[in-house]
Every structure is written in structure tokens, then in C-alpha cells.
């Protein structure tokens, strides 16, 4: 479709492979099937949160409410289910819908009332955090129902269930972005909302839908993550703010919107997870680990995002000065 987009995505995968090789040198045994499998499973959680984030960022926005949408879904699920499997039949759909609804509120705030996405989603994040603290009184919750644990850590014929789920979601996301009117509209809105509006693109609907999707995937990831850790706890969503955005950026999307693809985000999620696995092998203290992690992500994102989409943002001007225009 678009050569530059391909190049950015290709670069993300290339980076991933280089990182994998590097890891196998530093930490032999990292490339074992067991380790790879757990890496992919961990990447799936980032990947699912980053799915919605990808859509929002392509559309020219950003979703900072991800951590507490995720956390709220996790906490509410364990509280409502009380370790029982049966109630999940209504709890899971209801919480997914609730997550989507929060996303929709974000979308309306941004698209109708013109609240800057950073403010809108940050406010919603804080409101949800407060709500959950009030609701739970700050106390931890009961353990995750068995069915959810199966989804998160179980296997079908040796294949992690959560990975199957991720692949299915990735397929849907790819079709939405590449093969539907919604996808086309989203790229247009992210490139220039004004031009999109002048071209008859339903900008409001498109923006709201992107945020709705982000709320949905954050809630889904929250419940799956609860299954993985067997328990919901306060603050479990916090790491996913940074990682979901970083995954999108490493995946080659411009943080300013209008470009990128979920296929790239997948590589971004994997890169981040491999990094997380690699750093402990360096025998650093956990504080130092965070510092290195942050710096490495900063550098990676700058390299991947700025060098490519930053350059391409200049392309029209650049092209004009050299193209055959009078």
C-alpha cells in the first residue's frame, strides 16, 4: 500500500530480530521454546492494550485512560465473580461493554467538545482510579475465576490460548485498518481532520469508534491479565500506559497520527517484552533496571518513530522544493 509504512514496519521487525539475537548471546537459553512462549504471552497483553491505542493514535489522538480502564475491569471482574466461573458469562460482556463505553465518552469529549485528547483521557483515567479506590476501599480483591485463568495461561494442544486470542484480534485489526471504510477514514482524520471533514468523512463517528475500541481492548486486557496473575490488584494497569504507546511508536506509527499499522504494533509489543526479559540478565538492581528500560525505550522510539515518520512529515515540503513544481 504505502512504501514508507512498509519500511517502518519492516524496520520494527528487523529490530526485533536483532534484539532476539543479542539476547541469545547475553542470556543463553533465552531462545528456548519455553522462554519464547512466555515472552509471546507477555507480549500479548501489551499487544491487546496497544491494539486500541494504535487506532486512537492513527486517528491523531492518544488514550491515557488505558491503565485504569484495564485496572477497573480487572478489579470489578474479581469482585463481581467472587472466584466463580458461572457469573463470568454476564460479567465479561458487561465489563467489555463498560470499557467500550468509557472509550466512547473519551471520544465524545474529544470529538464533540474539543477537549484535547491528553486532558480528556487523563481526566477519565484519574476519575476511574478514584472510583475504584472508593469502591474497594483500597483493599485487594479475591482470586481470579478458573475460566479466566485458562484463557490467560492455558494451552490448547500446547498452544497458549491467549496467543490464539491475540492472533484473532490482530487479524480483525488488520482487516479494519486495511480493508474497511472505517480504516480509510481513520487515516484521513489522523492526517488532517479538516481535509477529512471537507471530504465528507464522518470524522465524529470515526474518532469515537477509535476511542471506543481502545476502551474495549483495555478492559479485555485487564481481565486476561487478572487471569495471568491470578489476582487483580491496584496499579496493575500502570505499566501499560507507557508500553501501549511505545509499542505503537516502535511499530512505525507517527505519534502525530495518520500513519502506522497494527502489524507494526505487534513487533513493538514483542520488542518491549524481549527488552524486559533481557534487562534482568544484566544483573541490575530493580531501580537501575527501570532507568535502563526507560532510556532504551526512549532511544528505540526516537529511532523508529522520529527518523521515519518525522522525516515523512517533512516529505511534502521536501518534495516540493525538489519536485517539478514551479
Amino acid at each position: 500500500m504505502n512504501i514508507r509504512r512498509h519500511r517502518a514496519i519492516l524496520l520494527a521487525y528487523l529490530g526485533m530480530i536483532v534484539l532476539l539475537l543479542l539476547t541469545s548471546v547475553v542470556a543463553p537459553g533465552f531462545l528456548s521454546a519455553t522462554h519464547l512462549r512466555s515472552t509471546v504471552v507477555l507480549a500479548a497483553f501489551i499487544g491487546i492494550v496497544a491494539l486500541g491505542q494504535t487506532f486512537v493514535i492513527i486517528g491523531g489522538g492518544i488514550d491515557l485512560s488505558v491503565p485504569w480502564v484495564l485496572n477497573s475491569a480487572a478489579v470489578l471482574m474479581t469482585l463481581l465473580a467472587g472466584s466463580q466461573d458461572a457469573p463470568l458469562l454476564w460479567i465479561v460482556p458487561v465489563l467489555l461493554a463498560a470499557g467500550a463505553l468509557v472509550g466512547m465518552v473519551n471520544g465524545f469529549g474529544v470529538a464533540i467538545f474539543g477537549v484535547p485528547p491528553i486532558i480528556m483521557t487523563l481526566a477519565v483515567n484519574v476519575i476511574l482510579q478514584g472510583g475504584i479506590l472508593v469502591y474497594t476501599g483500597g483493599a485487594p480483591t479475591s482470586t481470579a475465576p478458573k475460566a479466566i485463568q485458562f484463557l490467560a495461561v492455558g494451552r490448547i494442544a500446547g498452544f497458549p490460548v491467549v496467543l490464539i486470542l491475540w492472533i484473532a484480534l490482530a487479524a480483525i485489526a488488520t482487516i479494519l485498518l486495511s480493508k474497511t471504510a472505517f480504516g480509510r477514514h481513520l487515516y484521513a482524520v489522523g492526517t488532517s481532520a479538516t481535509v477529512a471533514e471537507f471530504s465528507g468523512v464522518p470524522t465524529l463517528r470515526t474518532t469515537v469508534l477509535a476511542y471506543t475500541l481502545s476502551g474495549f481492548t483495555a478492559a479485555l486486557a485487564g481481565m486476561l491479565l487478572t487471569g495471568y496473575t491470578a489476582q487483580a490488584y491496584l496499579g496493575m494497569g500502570d505499566p501499560y500506559l507507557f508500553t501501549s504507546i511505545a509499542a505503537v511508536a516502535i511499530g512505525g506509527a507517527s505519534i502525530l497520527g495518520g500513519s502506522g499499522h497494527y502489524i507494526g504494533t505487534i513487533a513493538g509489543a514483542l520488542v518491549l517484552t524481549i527488552l524486559t526479559g533481557l534487562l534482568p540478565a544484566l544483573n541490575l538492581s530493580s531501580g537501575a533496571l527501570l532507568i535502563v528500560y526507560g532510556v532504551v525505550i526512549l532511544v528505540t522510539v526516537s529511532l523508529a518513530s522520529e527518523a521515519l515518520s518525522g522525516l515523512s512529515a517533512f516529505l511534502p515540503r521536501f518534495g516540493r522544493s525538489r519536485g517539478p513544481s514551479a
Binding site: R184, Y187, A188, T191, V195, S199, S259, S312, P316
Partner: peptide
């Protein structure tokens, strides 16, 4: 430049933007 065209998108994407249906 600001109302008519997505400068960083292809001629194809611009041409069909209003008629994806």
C-alpha cells in the same frame, strides 16, 4: 493544501476519500 488534499497520502487515497462506499 489545508482543506482540499491529504498531502502526505497518495493520489489514490485522496481521489477516493469521499466515495469509499
Amino acid at each position: 493544501r489545508n482543506h482540499g488534499l491529504l498531502l502526505s497520502k497518495s493520489v489514490r487515497e485522496n481521489l477516493t476519500l469521499s466515495v469509499i462506499q
